[in-house]
Simulated scan of single mutants.
Amino acid sequence: MDQTTPVLLTSREVADLLRVPLRTVEDWRVTRSGPPWLKLGRHVRYDRDELLAWVKERRHG
């Protein structure tokens, strides 16, 4: 993949990466309080770069 091709993660991959329960990622999506996501047909995916930016925005201290 080149640098312009987005890396899309599943909800499980996001949960594993952030070390949170899958249910937490699902709750974030339902309440729209979590990272940006997109729907491809019936599949939910997260752009890795957008996910990492979302995490950095939440840094304290």
Rank of each mutant, 00 (worst) to 15 (best):
R19T: 10
W37A: 13
V14R: 02
E26G: 00
D47I: 00
S11C: 08
L38A: 06
T5V: 13
M1D: 12
G34E: 08
T4A: 01
R48D: 00
V20K: 01
E13T: 01
W28V: 09
D49W: 14
T31L: 14
E13Y: 00
T5L: 14
D27K: 15
E26M: 10
Y46E: 07
V14E: 02
V30T: 14
G41M: 09
V7D: 03
P6T: 03
A53C: 02
L22C: 01
T24Y: 00
A15W: 08
P35D: 06
V25R: 04
H60S: 09
M1Y: 08
R59H: 07
V44Q: 12
L17T: 06
L40Y: 11
L9T: 04
R29G: 01
R58H: 09
L18N: 05
M1Q: 11
D47G: 01
V14L: 05
M1N: 10
R48A: 13
D47T: 05
A53S: 09
R32E: 15
H60N: 07
P36C: 09
D49G: 00
W37Y: 15
L18S: 02
M1K: 08
L17E: 10
S33W: 04
V14K: 02
E26A: 13
K39V: 11
Q3G: 02
L8H: 11
H43D: 09
L40K: 14
L38I: 09
V20T: 06
P6Q: 05
R48F: 03
L8Y: 14
V55P: 11
K56D: 10
D49N: 10
E26F: 00
W37C: 12
R32K: 15
R19Q: 09
V7L: 13
R19N: 07
H60E: 06
L8F: 12
R59W: 03
L18K: 04
V55A: 03
V30A: 12
A15E: 05
T24Q: 14
V55S: 04
R19S: 06
D16Q: 10
V44G: 10
V14F: 01
W37G: 01
G61R: 07
S11G: 09
V44P: 11
A53G: 02
L40N: 14
R42Q: 14
D27R: 15
P36T: 08
L40P: 06
L17I: 07
S11D: 07
R59K: 03
R12V: 08
Y46G: 03
L8I: 09
L52D: 06
T31D: 12
E13G: 00
E50L: 15
L38E: 11
V55L: 05
K56Y: 00
R48M: 13
G61N: 05
S33I: 04
R32D: 14
L40M: 13
R58A: 01
